[in-house]
Amino acid sequence: MRLKKQKRHHRIVRFYVTCYDFRKPFKVLCDGTFVHHLLVNRITPADTALSNLLSVGGNEGAKLFTTRCVLAELKSLGDSYSESFKAAYNLKIARCDHTSRKSALACIMEIVGENNPEHFFVATQDTDLRKKFYEIPGVPLIFGLRNSLHLEPPSSFQRQFAKSVEEKRLHMSDLEYKMLRKRARKMLDKEDKDTSDADEGLRDQILAAENLSKTSSSNMAGDMKDRPQFKRKKAKGPNPLSCKKKKIHKLANLKLEKVSKCIFLYLLIA
């Protein structure tokens, strides 16, 4: 049973954290009836009990607050509430802007306001005060039952308000829609300008390439005309000086020698 209670309280705290932006350390605004209930049922220390209730601990424990009007009301109740007055006097004081003294109920209602800007958990035993806070969004309620503390589940009004706020977040407002259209128009104009610049750049590149090809072809033609035209030499016979002399065969030399000898002998005989 205790585990189910802790899980239920954890879901309630997570609802207010998610939907109403509550943050640790949580602040608890206590009235005189709640402080008196804590003392009568010996739920001490109060900050530890409330930290356990809200599932926070250590340096992020719950911070307890009260108001000057609550202290004045406890003091006016006499000796029967003197211990409650001393206990409430040790709590932190939440600032209330009204100058003259008001009742504790009116003071707490004024501090919480229409949307609970300080994100207070309100701890009270006053059923009328709790019913009034059912119709105010983002006001979690804590009450005591004998020697245990309980966290009030969110009312149907608070759940419906959180749902409507979430739906508004999902849809754009008129100002956001106008800003989005203006931004989209600027982006389209920029893209059109970039594409036109790119087309012009591509066109310039094509013209430059064509001019370069024309100039290169004309330069090549001019170079061909300016070059001297050489006639190719036709192949001629070998150089006689570089050729070797023909060798006379040995047999031919012997025949010439014989013929010369015969002629010489014939001349001698004659």
Rank of each mutant, 00 (worst) to 15 (best):
N90E: 15
I93P: 01
A94N: 03
C96D: 13
C96L: 13
C96P: 01
D97A: 08
S100V: 04
S100L: 11
K102M: 14
A104V: 08
C107D: 07
M109K: 13
M109E: 14
E110I: 00
I111V: 15
G113M: 05
G113L: 03
H119S: 09
H119Q: 10
H119Y: 06
V122F: 13
V122T: 07
A123D: 10
T124D: 11
L129H: 01
R130H: 04
F133H: 04
Y134L: 12
Y134E: 15
P137R: 03
G138R: 00
G138F: 09
V139H: 04
V139W: 09
G144I: 00
N147V: 00
S148Q: 12
H150F: 09
P153T: 01
S156H: 11
S156G: 06
F157N: 02
F157H: 08
R159N: 08
R159G: 06
R159L: 13
Q160I: 02
Q160A: 07
F161G: 00
F161P: 00
K163Y: 12
K163W: 09
S164G: 00
S164I: 02
V165Y: 04
R169D: 05
S173A: 03
S173H: 05
D174V: 02
D174M: 01
L175K: 10
Y177K: 09
Y177V: 03
M179S: 12
R181M: 12
R185P: 01
R185K: 12
K186L: 14
M187C: 03
M187Q: 15
D194A: 11
D194Y: 10
T195I: 10
S196D: 10
S196E: 14
S196M: 08
D197T: 13
A198N: 13
D199T: 04
G201V: 00
I206P: 00
A209D: 14
A209W: 01
E210R: 07
S213N: 04
S213Q: 10
S213R: 09
K214H: 13
T215R: 07
S217I: 06
S218E: 15
S218W: 11
S218V: 06
M220G: 02
A221T: 08
K225F: 11
K225N: 08
D226Q: 07
R227G: 02
Q229G: 03
R232Y: 07
K234R: 12
A235I: 13
A235F: 12
